Amino acid sequence: MLNMDILQLLPIAKAAGAAILKIYHDPNQSNVVDYKADDSPLTLADQAANEVIVAALRKNFPETHIISEEGKDIPYEVRSKWETFFLVDPLDGTKEFIKRNGQFTVNIALIENGKPVMGVVYTPVTDTMYYGQAGKGAFKQVGDAPAEALKVNQKAENRIAVRSASHASHEEEEVLNKYGVTDEMSVGSSLKFCMVAEGKADLYYRHGPTMEWDTAAGQAVVLAAGARMYIGNTEETEFTYNKENLLNPGFLVLGF
């Protein structure tokens, strides 16, 4: 693993969150548009956060490559040779940002040999940080309070599923029935992974498309908390990164 500690990523995520909030709370930007049009508040927030993250990562880890939503056009012939790289979504939760419900996040993950080995999911509006590192566990920190260790529930019955606040599918129902889900909760962005990591939910299934930067940090956190994540709706193939097409297939997260 790259010679670094997950704690080195926390101030970077917080600085990106501050850049987002400056635009989010700007009264001149109050009419948030629902598309990433040029110069929209959402686009400006994306770009501002991305600039903060990329600059900090390049300064602190100059030899480690970066793939981000705002800089995604790196040819596969180039990045396929990368064993280690950062995978960044500077602002995850487009619809949550537009709705102004606060459920959007800053995501930073470190990928090694296709697997997320550490990740940070930061919610700027509530100043809540979720982070996890392979072999070292997962944690949640709110503001300046001490960090709390996270662990999945391991529930055998009466399971709770976390579902998207903005997306849903018929296929989800079949999976939830298969695993004996009796209740559900809804939340936006990468916070769905975090709900499983802290034991508030037991399962997260996503049928619809996502991009690699949407899931990497959340997966790192939930795996560090003891969960498993698979491609599709069966427990057969582990979910990995740096595919030729950065579009993700469906996936299943199990906290038991």
Rank of each mutant, 00 (worst) to 15 (best):
I20E: 09
L91G: 13
T123R: 12
N3C: 05
E112Y: 06
P75D: 09
A217C: 05
R206N: 07
T105C: 14
K115I: 06
L10E: 02
T84Y: 13
N153M: 11
R163Y: 00
T210C: 09
D92Q: 11
L246E: 04
V88P: 08
A15R: 04
A13C: 11
Y205F: 11
D26R: 03
S190V: 02
E70I: 02
G218C: 03
V125S: 00
E212M: 04
A45C: 07
I98S: 08
E198S: 12
I23F: 07
G135Y: 13
H167V: 09
V196Q: 13
T234K: 15
P11W: 02
L87Y: 04
V88A: 10
G135V: 09
P27Y: 01
I20D: 08
R163H: 01
D34R: 08
G17W: 09
L44G: 02
A138P: 11
F251A: 03
G208E: 15
A109L: 04
V221C: 10
V221I: 14
L42A: 09
A48I: 06
G188K: 08
Q103H: 09
G137Y: 14
V52Y: 04
N233W: 07
Y24M: 01
N3R: 11
K136P: 05
A168T: 08
V78W: 07
T94Q: 07
S68N: 03
V162H: 04
V253K: 01
Y230N: 02
H65N: 03
L191R: 14
A147P: 07
A201R: 07
E77M: 04
Y241F: 14
A227G: 03
R79N: 00
N177P: 01
V162E: 05
L10G: 00
E198Q: 15
G250Q: 10
L91H: 15
I12R: 06
A138K: 14
E235D: 10
V120W: 13
V196R: 12
V221D: 09
E83A: 11
S166K: 00
A216H: 02
L10W: 01
D127C: 04
T128R: 04
T237E: 13
K72Q: 03
G132L: 08
A109M: 01
I98Y: 09
G102S: 01
L110D: 07
K115G: 00
M185G: 06
K115T: 09
G71R: 03
E69C: 03
G226I: 04
